[in-house]
Design a protein around this nucleic acid. Structure first.
Lengths: 230, 230
DNA sequence: GTCTATAAAGTGATAGAC
DNA sequence: GTCTATCACTTTATAGAC
């Protein structure tokens, strides 16, 4: 019955190599961009032959998808702390800033997930958003931690619930569709990141100002609650 | 002195071939995406040898840049008609819708200009935006026509002036920085287009609703002036 | 100006030995 | 599991004949 222990060790070793492959891949993508990621380069980096990679991943695309899932988990993890802010508008503002900050601090990762191939975006989100088209239901189930089962959906819920709270407080028109607002807000944040990454002359304004201006425009300027820069 | 006429004809022929190259390139990009654009494919399409291409363009990148400039002119041309709308908010709304519509109708072109390589974006805008950092000056010099000298700048001015008009009319807070608002608005529109192109599950809301919601949030809902859908 | 031919360097992926 | 060796291609770009 030692076989099971041996099998287990082998499994661990296999997982370890898989991790090394992803680690090396991430390094290459961050350093040279996704287009420069090739099986040979990865193999060189981990000092294995190219053929070995195919024992752990089906293809280059498979590796890219794994990188996306990893990166998306990191993104969620960097947003999670702000989910506990009590005041809904401050919460939205903090999440918005964190989202943009992540995108700018992890350019190539962000690019890979959201600006490369639709199928990459898909595998990052894990098809979460495609699930229930329920736009207006359920209390805040804040459970965006670690791994990524329905993670995208959870993040989306969090935003929608924040807007619902603002609606209940009369700070957002009752006739507004929360789903639409969230999508528009996401578009704004993505636009700020994406344009900063691809358009050399954008923006003249600091990104923090852009985010604040957007939040203010959508949800009203805060009533002398937090420190704001002129 | 016939030489000049001959030289002229030769020049015209050279220009014609240059156009055919770009035409074929555009077709390939629209059909198979930019990644699939290769010198051999272009040569096959126009029934010339690959070597000939290098008499008209320095490199593949050079062709890409030319395509960008072309595409950007088309974008400006599709926005231009709406510049004549008198009411500033309706003008902004119309331009916003036209911008998004262009991006969705010319996916690969839009991708090439704004989502591929910073240097492509650069050559499309012709360094226009980099020019004067003047944020608040000058009346509406509506001259975004045909070719593209300072075209990007002109489009930017048009938006800024519209916002200035709204400010003067008291519909936008006087303390707002027009430059920042324009950049945020652009980010929103770009985000809507970019996410629709790369994120398969985005959006659940129709893009027209997203654009309208954004314009309403930024500049207030119109006072029973135009037809709006519920 | 246009061609043929080819250089020089990559690519992803696989068969089969060990 | 891991390797060597290689297939079958792709790419951009250029030299030199015509």
């Amino acid at each position: 019955m030692h076989d099971m222990g041996i099998a287990e060790r082998k499994h661990r070793q296999k997982q370890a190599l898989r991790e090394r492959i992803l680690e090396a891949s991430r390094a290459i993508v961050m350093r040279e961009g996704f287009a420069a990621l090739s099986m040979r380069k990865i193999a060189d980096a981990i000092e294995y032959s190219p053929a070995t990679l195919y024992l752990h991943f089906e293809s280059r695309d498979d590796i890219a998808r794994a990188l996306c899932a990893e990166g998306y988990d990191q993104l969620l993890a960097s947003l999670a702390p702000h989910a506990q802010i009590a005041e809904p508008q401050a919460r939205l503002r903090a999440i918005a800033h964190a989202y943009v900050a992540f995108g700018l601090a992890n350019r190539e990762t962000y690019r890979l997930i959201f600006m490369e191939d639709p199928s990459y975006t898909d595998s990052a989100l894990g098809g979460a958003l495609a699930g229930g088209a329920s736009s207006e239901a359920g209390p805040a189930a804040v459970a965006s931690e670690g791994a990524n089962p329905e993670g995208g959906d959870a993040a989306f819920r969090l935003l929608i619930d924040s807007i619902e709270e603002l609606k209940a407080a009369g700070r957002v028109s009752a006739s507004a569709v929360s789903q639409t607002w969230v999508e528009a807000l996401w578009a704004t944040l993505h636009g700020i990141v994406a344009l900063t990454l691809t358009c050399p002359v954008y923006p003249h304004s600091p990104v923090e100002k852009l985010v604040d201006a957007a939040i203010d425009a959508w949800f009203g300027a805060p009533d002398a609650q937090r420190s704001r820069r002129a």
